[in-house]
């Protein structure tokens, strides 16, 4: 049964022989999205469960995938907030933050668009029919849960603070004083971009000022809203850039921690 009996081929509409007359290569963006997101998911899963090579003790580099490190299996120096999660191969060391980060991105308005279009083909591209007979969108379980995105945003802000803290602690030299290496630059760049992604969130735009009816009565929040709005227009870019920087940062820590490469040092 073709799904389109109710759609563009529904009886009252103009009867056209094909479901879509688009002549451009509309399938390219969804394919790229599938490829991009898949790479990230596979890489992230592998690293989250690897439970190794996440901490460079000489320079205090901690990969964001293991922050905060809270498992009893964590290397001592890497755990800035105590160790209490059971050490189990099925429980990632950062099991307190990763689910929230995952949920934050999963319910992100941009990623929703991206995976609805590319994985669920709903729709694959504009004016190209989707293959489903029924569609209820986000009106019922489970997708109605997307509405709690704002709470994951609050969590993400907290986690971004922790990531920032990690990046600051990483200005460390083996002799215990201040140190600076390529790793620091990568960690800091990653944190800045994570902030850009987090603050450009639509929920952030809503809570800073979007929910107000009268901007003129709240000049400070209006000012904040305008800044968040500027970031917000780049939210999609930040979503992809941070996927890139997360992989890059983690890979760098991985390579340095495993001794595959050594960190070029500038100071200490």
């Amino acid at each position: 049964m073709t799904a389109t009996d109710t759609g563009v081929h529904a009886p009252p509409r103009a009867r056209l022989p094909v479901p879509s007359l688009r002549t451009d290569r509309w399938w390219v963006p969804p394919v790229l999205t599938v490829v991009g997101l898949s790479i990230f998911v596979i890489y992230a899963t592998f690293r989250a469960f690897q439970q190794d090579y996440y901490w460079v003790s000489e320079y205090h580099y901690l990969t964001p995938f293991y922050s905060p490190c809270m498992s009893t299996g964590c290397v001592e120096g890497a755990a800035h907030f105590g160790r209490f999660l059971p050490d189990n191969p099925l429980i990632p060391y950062a099991a307190l933050s990763l689910p929230f980060l995952l949920a934050f991105r999963l319910t992100c308005y941009y990623y929703r668009k991206a995976y609805y279009r590319s994985f669920w083909l709903s729709p694959p591209a504009c004016a190209v029919p989707e293959p489903h007979t029924r569609y209820t969108g986000e009106t019922r379980l489970p997708l109605i849960l997307q509405n709690v995105h704002r709470y994951f945003f609050y969590a993400a802000v907290l986690i971004s603070v922790i990531n920032t803290y990690d990046a600051i602690l990483a200005f460390h030299s083996p002799d215990g004083g201040f140190g600076l290496g390529l790793g620091n630059i990568i960690l800091v760049a990653n944190v800045i971009l994570l902030w850009c992604y987090t603050l450009s969130c639509h929920s952030c735009r809503h809570v800073t000022g979007g929910r107000l009816r009268h901007f003129s009565k709240h000049p400070v929040r209006y000012w904040l809203w305008t800044k968040v709005s500027v970031l917000n227009t780049r939210h999609m870019e930040f979503a992809w850039i941070t996927i890139g920087t997360l992989i890059l940062t983690d890979l760098y820590v991985f390579l340095v921690a495993s001794g595959a490469i050594s960190d070029p040092r500038i100071i200490g």
Partner: peptide, 15 residues
């Protein structure tokens, strides 16, 4: 008005 049906895939904005 069915706001929940919208899955923010942005085709409206595109056109």
């Amino acid at each position: 008005h069915g706001l929940g049906y919208c899955n923010i895939t942005k085709c409206c904005t595109e056109v």
